[in-house]
């Protein structure tokens, strides 16, 4: 089965835009859940760039890296959400501006 022939630039442009959006979300949101979502978006954008590169060179490596990113994302979300629960319990808030006990 064949695929589409798409200008690689466009895919990478999309990936960059998605990544920037995720980054902006990370900087903008104060709620830890939204921050985690932003991280997912960023990881996903990176994965998109890898898959696009794999499609350009017709190699399996892009998809393999995608798999690795997937496992990183899964692990991160599992631990991150566990932390979210802990934060909610201890600080009774998800506002990361108030959870700043590590300040110098």
């Amino acid at each position: 089965m064949g695929g589409l022939q798409i200008p690689l630039e466009h895919v990478l442009l999309l990936a960059a835009t998605l990544f920037s959006c995720g980054l902006m979300g990370l900087m903008l949101r104060r709620n830890i859940i939204f921050m985690l979502m932003s991280l997912e978006v960023m990881l996903n954008a990176a994965a998109l760039a890898f898959v696009a590169a794999g499609a350009r060179w017709q190699q399996a490596d892009g998809q393999i890296i995608f798999l690795l990113i997937l496992s990183v994302a899964a692990a991160e979300v599992a631990v991150g959400l566990g932390l979210v629960l802990q934060i909610q319990r201890r600080f009774k808030t998800l506002d990361m501006d108030q959870v700043n006990r590590l300040r110098g």
């Binding site: 990370l26 900087m27 104060r30 830890i32 921050m35 990361m96 501006d97 959870v99 700043n100 006990r101 590590l102 300040r103 110098g104």
Partner: peptide
């Protein structure tokens, strides 16, 4: 330098 260590994730 310590003032940089705000403890704020954002």
């Amino acid at each position: 330098l310590i003032t940089l260590q705000t403890g704020e994730l954002r």
